[in-house]
Amino acid sequence: MSANSRLTIAAHALVWMEIHQRGGDGIATSEQIAGSVNTNPVVIRRLLGELRKAGLVTSRRGAGAGWTLARELEFVTLLEVYEAVEPSALFAMHRAEPNQECPVGFGIRPAMQDVYDEVEAVLRGQLARTTLADVLRNVLAAR
C-alpha cells in the first residue's frame, strides 16, 4: 500500500506560489506549479480546485489566467490544507462487516477505532500548530 502524498503536494504548491509571488510574478499557472512538483498540470488543477473551495487560493480565467494565494501563509495551517485535500478519515475499518461470531471479528472495530481516534487527534494537533509560513522557513533553510 502506498502512502498518500496529497497534503505534501498541496503544501508544495502553496509554498511555491508564495515564492512565485515574492518574485513579482503574481499569478501562477498550473503548468508552472506542476513543473516544480514534477507532476501533470491536471493533478495540480484538481488539487487547486479543492484548495479554492476551502478558501485558500483564488483563480482567474481568461487572459492572464492562473492562481493566487487567498491568504498570507502565516494565517494558513497545515490542518486547513489537510482538511481541504483529505476529506475522509485517516484510517478506515473493514469494507465488509467482520464475522460477529468470531471474538476478533466482534471486537476489532472498537479496539482499532480507539487507536485511530488518538492518532488522528495527535496528527490534527500537530498540523494545527504548523503554518505554511513555518513550512516556507524550513524549505528556505534547507538550501
Rank of each mutant, 00 (worst) to 15 (best):
Met1Arg: 11
Ser2Gly: 08
Ser2Glu: 06
Asn4Leu: 12
Asn4Glu: 12
Asn4Pro: 00
Arg6Phe: 09
Arg6His: 13
Arg6Leu: 15
Leu7Cys: 09
Ile9Thr: 03
Ile9Tyr: 08
Ile9Glu: 07
Ala10Val: 06
Ala11Gly: 11
Ala11Ile: 04
His12Thr: 10
His12Ile: 01
Ala13Arg: 03
Leu14Gly: 00
Leu14Thr: 00
Leu14Pro: 00
Val15Phe: 01
Val15Asn: 03
Glu18Pro: 00
Ile19Leu: 14
His20Ser: 10
Gln21Gly: 05
Gln21Arg: 10
Arg22Gln: 12
Arg22Gly: 12
Gly24Arg: 03
Asp25Thr: 04
Ile27Tyr: 06
Ile27Met: 10
Thr29Phe: 04
Ser30Arg: 07
Ser30Trp: 00
Glu31Asn: 08
Glu31Leu: 07
Gln32Tyr: 00
Ile33Pro: 01
Ala34Glu: 02
Asn38Trp: 08
Thr39Asn: 15
Pro41Thr: 15
Val42Asp: 09
Ile44Leu: 08
Ile44His: 10
Arg45Gln: 14
Arg46Cys: 07
Leu47Ala: 04
Leu48Thr: 07
Leu48Ser: 08
Gly49Cys: 11
Leu51Tyr: 04
Lys53Ile: 09
Lys53His: 05
Ala54Glu: 01
Ala54Ile: 00
Gly55Lys: 10
Leu56Cys: 03
Ser59Asn: 05
Arg60Thr: 15
Arg60Pro: 08
Gly62Thr: 10
Gly62Ser: 08
Ala65Gly: 14
Ala65Cys: 08
Ala65Tyr: 13
Gly66Val: 09
Gly66Ile: 07
Ala70Tyr: 06
Arg71Asp: 12
Leu73Ser: 10
Phe75Trp: 13
Phe75Leu: 03
Thr77Phe: 08
Leu78Glu: 12
Leu79Tyr: 05
Glu80Met: 05
Val81Thr: 06
Tyr82Lys: 09
Glu83Ile: 06
Val85Phe: 02
Val85Gly: 08
Glu86Cys: 13
Pro87Asp: 03
Phe91Trp: 11
Ala92Lys: 11
Ala92Ser: 14
Met93Ala: 14
Arg95Leu: 09
Arg95Ile: 09
Pro98Ser: 12
Pro98Ala: 09
Asn99Ser: 13
Pro103Met: 15
Val104Arg: 11
Gly105Asn: 13
Gly105Ala: 14
Gly105Thr: 13
Gly105Leu: 12
Gly105Pro: 02
Arg109Val: 07
Arg109Asp: 02
Ala111Cys: 05
Ala111Lys: 03
Met112Phe: 10
Met112Val: 07
Met112Ala: 05
Asp114Ser: 12
Asp114Trp: 13
Val115Pro: 00
Asp117Leu: 06
Val119Ala: 15
Ala121Cys: 06
Val122Lys: 11
Val122Gly: 04
Arg124Trp: 02
Gly125Met: 01
Gly125Pro: 12
Gln126Asp: 09
Leu127Gly: 13
Thr130Asn: 07
Leu132Ile: 10
Leu132Cys: 07
Ala133Val: 06
Val135Phe: 09
Asn138Gly: 13
Asn138Leu: 05
Val139His: 11
Leu140Gln: 12
Leu140Val: 14
Ala141Lys: 05
Ala142Ser: 11
Ala142Trp: 08
